[in-house]
Amino acid sequence: MIGAIILTSVLAFLAWLFMTMGSGNLLYLWDLKEIYAGIFFSVVTGVVAGRFVKGKDWRMLNPARWFLFAAYLIGPFFIAMAKANFDVAYRVITGKIRPGIVRIRPNLKTDLGITMLANSITLTPGTLSVDVDENSGDLFVHWINVKNGAEEKDICDYKLVCGKFPDWIRRIAE
C-alpha cells in the first residue's frame, strides 16, 4: 500500500519534471518554483491514485527490462513497423488481399505480456489482433494475406504471423 503510493508519487514527479523542462535555470532546465509545485502535486497524486495500483508484481521496476524494452522498440519493432507500412501501401495500391482470422498460441502468461504482444501485432505487417481467449492466452489475429496452407491448421504457428515478438516479450515482461 505504502509502496504503491510512493511508486505513484515518484512516477508522477518524473512526469512533472519531464513536462516542465525548460522552465528555468536550475541545472539549465527547471525553475525552483516548478520543483516545489511538482513535489506537492505528485504527493497528492500518489495519495489519491496509489490505491488503484493493484497486484504484487514489481518485476517491471527492474531497469534491465526497461533497456530491453527500449532495444525492442527501436530495433525489431521499428523495422517490422516500417515493413508493415510499405506492405499496406502496396496492398492499398494493388488491392491484392487474401484475408482471414487465424488463431495463434504465444504462451504468454501475464496480462501485460499479452497486451504488449497484441499491440505489437496490430502495428506490424499485415496483422490485426481481434480477440483473445483469456483462459489459454490464445490470440485471434486478422491476417490480411494468409499464407498458403496456414489456414488449414487449427492453431497457426506464431512464427509465421509475428516472427520473434513473443520471445522478445517473454524476456521483457515475464
Binding site: 513497423m81 516500417a82 508493415a84 507500412n85 499496406v88 501501401a89 496492398r91 492499398v92 488491392g95 488481399i97 484475408p99 496490430t122 502495428l123 499485415g126 490485426l128 481481434v130 486478422h142 490480411i144
Partner: peptide, 21 residues
Amino acid sequence: GLMRMPDIYTRLHAATKCTTF
C-alpha cells in the same frame, strides 16, 4: 486505404498502421 479496402478489418489495417507510422 480507408476508401479502397473491402471491409472493416482490412480498413482498420490501413487506418491504424499508416496513421501511427
